[in-house]
Nucleic acid binder design. Structure first.
Length: 176
DNA sequence: GCCAACGTTGGC
DNA sequence: GCCAACGTTGGC
């Protein structure tokens, strides 16, 4: 019997803004609790090519993403989501009414791509950015773009950092 | 609201 | 292709 080869998941961090912020009359706030309520969400609105390329070229179904609360009073890691649909054109680039409308994009040559993600869990404990910054010399966290670069709304996380953060946030995750 | 760090744009 | 001007990100 042939066994389907299962690909090991890769890990990422995606940023969302839990604060109220109006864009064209639409409140764009989106926290891990909103993610939980919706269940599945299209990750629209990424308008940075590096972040877009990660979604377009690297993210696969079943990859896991740390869900980060950004641009708010207490920035940090709130939960976990899973990629449930591989990249396809972000429909907001074609929508003239959208804040994310891109006049240079066409259906034939879309410029922006997104994935769909599904809610996995809210971590038992919120891990503030400050806590991670205090640990930035830790060998597991040293290479995180979140800590030594910032300003990238979709970023890769290596396995050792992912496991370390999950253990901080949820002590029994990964335990036997 | 400030502003540093980036990314993008567009004139040349 | 350079690079100054401008816009955005996002912690503080």
């Amino acid at each position: 019997m042939t066994k389907a080869t299962t690909r090991k998941p890769s890990f990422f961090l995606i940023k969302s803004e839990p604060n109220s912020r109006l864009e064209n009359g639409v409140d764009m706030k989106f926290s891990i609790e909103d993610m939980k309520a919706i269940g599945v969400d299209s990750w629209t609105g990424v308008r940075n090519h590096e972040a877009k390329n990660l979604m377009k070229n690297t993210m696969k179904v079943d990859d896991l993403c740390l869900f980060y609360h950004s641009n708010c009073k207490l920035p940090g890691i709130a939960g976990l989501v899973r990629v449930c649909k591989e990249s396809y054109p972000d429909f907001t680039q074609f929508d003239k009414k959208s804040h994310y409308y891109d006049p240079k994009a066409t259906k034939e040559a879309p410029r922006w791509f997104m994935v769909d993600v599904e809610y996995v869990k809210t971590f038992k404990r919120f891990v503030p950015l400050k806590e991670l910054q205090k640990l930035r010399d830790n060998e597991h966290l040293r290479d995180m773009p979140l800590l030594n670069r910032g300003r990238l709304s979709v970023q890769p996380v290596d396995k050792k950092a992912f496991d370390f953060i999950c253990n901080l946030a949820e002590s029994d995750l990964g335990d036997p």
